[in-house]
Amino acid sequence: MTTRTGARGMAVLRTVTLIGAVLTTGLGAGLFYSYACSVMPGLAKVDDRAFVDTMQRINVAILNGWFMLSFVGALVLIAAAGILQWRGGDRTVLLWIGAAAVLHLTVFVVTAAVNVPLNDKLAAAGAPDRLTDPAAVRAAFEDVWVRWNLVRAVTATAAFGCLTWALALAGRRS
C-alpha cells in the first residue's frame, strides 16, 4: 500500500513540476515575443535619444523577481522535471524535456553572451540627455539586440512547445 501511495505521489510531483516548467517557459517565451513584435518595432519609430532613454529604463526595470522567476525558474523547473522523469517516468516524455532544456539553455546563453553585454554597454553610454551622439549609441545596440532577441523568442517558443508536448504525452500515460 505504501509503495502504491509513494508511486502516486511521485507521479503527481512529476506532473506539477512539468506544469511549472511549462508555465515559466511560456512566460519567458511570451516576453521575448512581445519585444519582437511590439516593443522594439514601436521603439524603432522614436528618435535616438528617446530610444536610448527608454531602453536604459527598460533594462533597469526588468531586473526584478518576477522576471527572474520565469527566466531562472524555468531552467530550474525544466531540470527538476527531467530528473523526476529520469527516476521512473516515461523516457519519451524525458526526451521532450531534454530538448526543452537544450533550447532554454540556449536562450540563457544568448541572453548572457549577447543581450546583457549590449544592455551593459547601453547603460555605460551615460544619460541620454548628455550623449553627444545618441545615434551612434543606438546604432551599436539596436540591430544586434533585436536580431538576437528574435533568436531568443523563437528558441524559447520552441522550448515551450517541447514542454507542452511532454505534458500532453505525460497526461496520456497517466
Rank of each mutant, 00 (worst) to 15 (best):
M1R: 08
M1K: 09
T2Y: 01
T2E: 14
T3D: 15
R4F: 04
G6K: 12
A7I: 03
V12F: 10
L18N: 06
L18E: 10
L18G: 08
I19E: 04
I19V: 15
G20C: 09
A21N: 08
A21K: 08
V22L: 13
L23Y: 06
T24Y: 01
G26A: 12
A29R: 02
Y33C: 05
Y33H: 12
Y33V: 08
S34H: 10
Y35V: 11
A36S: 15
A36I: 01
C37G: 00
S38M: 13
P41R: 11
G42N: 11
D48L: 03
D48R: 05
R49A: 14
A50L: 12
F51Q: 09
R57F: 02
R57S: 14
I58A: 04
N59Y: 07
N59V: 01
A61D: 09
I62S: 01
I62H: 03
N64T: 05
N64I: 02
N64R: 04
W66H: 06
L69A: 14
L69M: 11
G73M: 00
I78G: 11
A79M: 12
A79L: 15
A80R: 08
A81Y: 10
G82Y: 06
G82H: 09
G82A: 07
G82Q: 11
I83T: 14
L84P: 13
Q85K: 06
W86N: 03
W86G: 09
G89H: 11
G89E: 11
D90T: 10
R91G: 07
R91L: 10
T92W: 02
T92D: 15
V93E: 10
W96R: 15
W96K: 13
I97Q: 08
G98N: 12
A100R: 06
A100Y: 10
A101F: 15
V102E: 02
L103N: 08
L105V: 07
F108C: 02
V109W: 05
V110D: 01
V110F: 04
V110S: 03
A113D: 01
A113C: 02
N115F: 01
V116A: 03
V116H: 02
P117L: 04
L118F: 00
N119T: 02
D120C: 00
L122T: 07
L122A: 06
A123H: 11
G126R: 08
P128H: 11
L131I: 05
T132R: 12
T132G: 05
D133P: 02
A135P: 04
A135Y: 01
A136H: 06
V137I: 09
V137Y: 06
A139V: 03
A140I: 01
E142V: 03
E142H: 11
V146A: 13
V146F: 13
R147C: 00
R147P: 00
N149R: 07
L150N: 14
L150T: 10
V151A: 08
R152V: 05
R152K: 07
A153C: 02
A153H: 02
A153F: 01
A153Y: 00
V154G: 03
T157M: 09
T157E: 04
A158G: 13
A158M: 09
F160W: 09
F160M: 15
G161T: 04
C162Q: 04
W165M: 10
A166Y: 05
A166D: 07
A166M: 08
L167E: 06
L167W: 10
A168L: 12
A170M: 10
R172A: 13
R173M: 04
